[in-house]
Design a protein around this nucleic acid. Structure first.
Lengths: 218, 218
DNA sequence: GATGTCGTTCTTGTATACAAAAACGTTGAC
DNA sequence: GTCAACGTTTTTGTATACAAGAACGACATC
């Protein structure tokens, strides 16, 4: 029997929350989940703590934990912050990036392009993720990298959703290229602006998507 | 007896780690702390989880938790990120800030100035904190505000240390004024640059301070 | 009939008991 | 004398038992 089952449960629950298994505001029942995972309440509670710190659930003392899906406004805000942070990465990377890393980024973009033409959204998604992760790494700031990864991970399901939009894949690719070009030129401002626009537009697109899905809600 | 003792313990432990009660790399003993806080191991373990997620301790499976003080490099990195995030706040605030809020910020600065002249570092510290918190708020982005508060809180003890440096208080004040002026002008770039320099310099000062304290270490 | 209060039940928070893995020391062989 | 293997001890991870607060409902009172 493996140790640290709480960790596995936390990841599983996180996935379930993010993919919409639990609705917003739903209460996560300790005993129910304990039975479902075939463990005692203890690992479940440990998992809850992690989720609460990630902001996926809210822990109300003596009341329980409730899933807390970000609303449209908060999502926009999160994408705005993501854009800002990636812009910081770009600024730093523009100064420090090596030719080796630049070549690698162009490589990733090329594979991304292939995925677009092949219509393979999953592959596109993976390569797209690689691109951003490389940018974080190339900032040369380990702490910044970790913070970016955290937020990037949190936004994952929403990015995924909006990638289905028509024509967005090709445009997104072009934006990636623009970023790499700016990095190659060592142009901090242009790199920052390019990546900021690239990320922020995702939040806006998502917003539009949401609005179109439930037009008369509230 | 109040509920949620784990939370109180977490905060207490956080304070103890930050003020240097525990050395870097020290192992936090569950049973020992349980005895010390007159509770069982359960709340201690819950507190550990929180600390681990904040990055103050490292949890190694089946080994225990170890305090993880950031080294000079990581500190510089963290201040760099803080600077970047506050710059984002400044950019957003420059567009959205109201005259009402601007007046309030000038007020805070005035009180700060008084504290400098009175040599009251504690008051200075509180007002200084208010200034930054107001900036976060004025970004108009609640998520960004929360993230900034998180990092700001984490850097608290290190800021406090470096505030003792001679002449820094007066200079810091002038920088605050420059930020408010830029905000008043609605000059995004200047506001961002001003606050970035203001924050980043703290990390550097701290670095110098550390270097001067242990000149021949390593 | 509505409302407030009391009691039951359910759920969370904490303590304790148990299991398993890792650290440590001891002992034995080379 | 050194090194390795085994057993003991300590410590973490999990389960279960217990305590206390909150939700819910019934009953009484106005």
């Amino acid at each position: 029997m493996e140790p640290r089952r709480a960790e596995i449960i936390a990841d599983t629950l996180e996935g379930m929350i993010l993919d919409g298994t639990f609705a917003d505001g739903a209460r996560l029942d300790e005993v129910q989940l304990a039975a479902r995972f075939k463990v005692s309440r203890t690992p479940i509670r440990e998992a809850f703590q992690r989720l609460a710190l990630s902001g996926l659930v809210e822990q109300i003392p003596r009341r329980g934990v409730f899933v807390r899906q970000p609303g449209p406004v908060e999502l926009i805000e999160m994408f705005e912050v993501m854009a800002g942070m990636e812009a910081i990465c770009a600024r730093l990377a523009a100064r420090r990036i090596s030719d080796r890393a630049l070549a690698e980024m162009r490589n990733v973009n090329a594979r991304c392009q292939q995925a677009v033409q092949a219509g393979d959204t999953d592959l596109y998604y993976r390569e797209n993720e690689s691109f951003h992760h490389m940018l974080y790494r190339q900032s040369g700031n380990g702490f910044l990298e970790q913070e970016c990864l955290r937020l990037h991970r949190r936004l994952k399901p929403f990015r995924r959703l909006q990638l289905r939009l028509r024509g967005r894949l090709g445009q997104s690719m072009a934006e990636h290229e623009a970023v790499v070009d700016a990095l190659a030129d060592g142009d901090e401002a242009r790199a920052a602006e390019a990546i900021h626009a690239h990320v922020a537009v995702q939040g806006e697109k998502f917003h539009h998507l949401m609005a179109s899905l439930k037009p008369a809600a509230e």
